[in-house]
């Protein structure tokens, strides 16, 4: 029999899980790139990898303290954004897509190769970088919480840290997009030549946007590795596609959309995967193995991306009025 309570409680845990926070923050960065500026960044996984590896390597190899490691990860993503942006931001939008996706893959291959094993841990990745972060935990040891949300002090600390970052990033994004700066950014999304003709340095604005969204991605990468290890295979192109799914679900040109999109995405995915896995165990789906059940989620995400783009391009939170003009 299926334990519905367990399924629901597992799904409910996703609401505040650090993974949800990490995806929300990465999607927010992508919202700045794609939703507001119109930059087709398909390398968000690369920015996340830089945050994750930047933090871990700075801690393990250079022995930096937590704040230094965070700054190191941010700096790495800024450099990456500049390397991507300088050659491509003058070119047509689809070139950026190809270059970012390629650059993120290059990064992943470099992190996976055996050549840099002592620093990157190659395919096995890195662990043992959490000590400094755990030491900063202000919450006394013990179990806290109620209902499905009962965690130890470290787990709460990770959640607190992650969601604080998300809220701060959302506030900054919201302020930015309400400002004249945001107006230029949105103008560039609509037609960059028109904005150029009005005397704005389009290239410079795009670069700023790429850097800000990239820094959000790198912070997301740091949140992502606090509850787990750093493993290079987590940073494949499909990670970027999942973040796109979240962004499109919530609404690409909104501030709340990516966050709520991430919550909905993870709750539904957890519930769905849990349900199918249990249903297979219970013999309800005789034609399916448990391995196949695991693949269903990817099929579902792919189909969801298609359906949202076709039938609700403005997302859940997007402006209804926009719908008529979204092309």
């Amino acid at each position: 029999m299926i334990d519905w309570l367990l399924l629901l409680s597992n799904a409910a845990q996703e609401i505040i899980s650090p993974t949800t926070a990490a995806y929300a923050l990465a999607a927010l960065g992508l919202a700045i790139h794609f939703g507001f500026t119109g930059l087709l960044n398909f390398g968000q996984a690369g920015f996340m990898a830089l945050g994750a590896y930047g933090f871990a390597i700075a801690t393990l190899t250079f022995g930096l303290p937590v704040w230094g490691a965070i700054l190191f990860g941010i700096a790495a993503s800024i450099v990456f954004a500049l390397i991507l942006g300088v050659p491509t931001l003058r070119l047509r939008a689809d070139y950026l897509a190809i270059v970012t996706i390629a650059a993120a893959e290059i990064l992943r291959l470099l992190l996976t190769t055996n050549q840099f094993e002592p620093v990157t841990g190659s395919a096995n990745g890195l662990q043992g970088y959490k000590g400094g972060f755990a030491a900063l935990n202000p919450i006394p040891d013990g179990q806290y919480g109620f209902g499905p949300w009962v965690y130890n002090a470290y787990d709460w600390w990770v959640r607190l840290f992650g969601w604080t970052l998300v809220v701060l990033a959302a506030l900054i994004t919201w302020r930015l997009m309400k400002s004249p700066w945001g107006r230029v950014i949105k103008g560039i999304r609509e037609d960059e030549d028109a904005v150029r003709a009005l005397g704005k340095n389009v290239y410079f604005y795009k670069m700023q946007s790429l850097v800000i969204g990239g820094v959000f991605g790198s912070l997301a990468g740091m949140i992502f590795i606090l509850p787990r290890a750093v493993v290079p295979s987590n940073y494949q192109t499909s990670l970027t596609f999942f973040i796109y799914a979240i962004l499109l679900l919530g609404g690409a040109a909104t501030v709340l959309g990516p966050i709520v999109g991430s919550v909905i995405f993870w709750v539904l995915l957890s519930f769905f995967s849990g349900f199918v896995a249990r249903a297979v165990e219970a013999g309800w789906l005789p034609f399916m193995s448990s391995v196949q059940a695991g693949q269903l989620r990817f099929i579902l995400v792919g189909a969801a991306i298609m359906l949202i783009v076709i039938y609700r391009p403005q997302g859940i939170f997007g402006n209804k009025k926009e719908l008529a003009f979204v092309k």
């Binding site: 499909s238 269903l296 792919g302 298609m306």
Partner: peptide, 8 residues
């Protein structure tokens, strides 16, 4: 989306 779905 299609690529992801079909691949899996």
């Amino acid at each position: 989306g299609l690529s992801l779905a079909v691949r899996y």
